[in-house]
Design a protein around this nucleic acid. Structure first.
Lengths: 189, 189
DNA sequence: GTCTATATAATGATAGAC
DNA sequence: GTCTATCATTATATAGAC
């Protein structure tokens, strides 16, 4: 053997994957502005220059990392009669999920002009339209948007701003009321 | 007269007011991270150094400028039977309000750690609690929080991310559905 | 009370060696 | 395919003259 110290793997796809994974985590925690390319590279155990190499720019990295992961498939699976309950449970039972969280990433990037266009497009195509397609009756897109608003606002208040329900029964009341509001939007016609 | 060229007024209170007004506008437009002290000073027609002089830091300026203005008084005035309608109208009829907008400022600062504590406190004390006090029945604070989530989420989707309802009748449907959802949370018991 | 000038630190991006 | 080194820009904050 000869010399080959500094890097673990000479594989472009493994490198890009490591960058994407790290980027998703850091964007989730710090938002678009707060996430630095150096920190992302460090977490990926990769040289900073490779971010520009493979993704062109921080903006390109964000677009490749976050929007493709935005989906509602998990809660859309199942009958729509139980949608409100499922959705409310998924929002209140977020058991300190660490790592990537598309919703947090969206909330913490929404104030950055570079991120807004791709976020809007992904939200439309991958969340609101699929949800609207599962609704019956009039104004399905508008009702889907209001369900989206409820979800987004709930997460903003509780997980970004850190508002807390005081006590376990308050949490129950919150979850039930949320489920009811969502289901009312689903059942409306 | 002798020499006195570069500044219009030698008055601390006028200067701090000019800074506060400019800061509110810039924070609204650009968010906490995006707003630069230079830009704020320029818009206030004031020297940059005076921001540190009077507010200590950018964080101090934000705390002095935005949170004290967060209030729900305008829509809380009136009987609660019409609250949903009033609130929905105030959200959808935002006729391109220019200048300071507390809700936009909140949304665009929520991803910045320096802004979160003061935003949470102001939201609790000046918005959610006053609203909860006007509600009757059980779990008033939780229902107030969900109304807040709906409002915050709605503005995030429409004004920060720029989702648009397609057509005037779609806007009507949106407004009516929103009013209905809010009022259901008010009337619940 | 306000100014200029600067200290200090961080950023995103790139050129070119290996 | 990956590295080091650096460029260029920008940011907040402060010291000290006026």
């Amino acid at each position: 053997m000869s010399e080959t110290p500094p890097h673990r793997k000479r594989d472009a796809s493994a490198t890009t994957e490591a960058i994407l994974t790290a980027a998703r985590e850091v964007f989730t925690e710090k938002g678009y502005d707060g996430a630095g390319t150096r920190e992302i590279a460090e977490r990926a155990q990769v040289n900073v220059a490779l971010i520009s190499r493979y993704f062109g720019s921080k903006e390109g990295l964000f677009a490749a990392a976050v929007p493709p992961m935005m989906t509602l498939d998990a809660v859309l699976a199942g009958d729509m009669a139980g949608f409100g309950t499922r959705l409310a449970a998924s929002l209140t039972h977020k058991t300190a999920r660490k790592g990537f969280d598309p919703m947090l990433a969206l909330l913490r990037a929404a104030s950055s002009p570079e991120a807004v266009p791709v976020l809007r497009q992904a939200l439309q195509a991958q969340v609101l339209h699929p949800l609207a397609d599962r609704l019956e009756g009039p104004a399905t897109l508008e009702r889907a948007a209001l369900i989206g608003a409820l979800v987004v606002g709930f997460d903003l208040l509780t997980r970004v701003l850190g508002l807390t329900a005081t006590g376990a029964d308050a949490m129950d009341a919150l979850e039930q009321t949320l489920a009811k509001s969502v289901q009312a939007l689903v059942d409306q016609r």
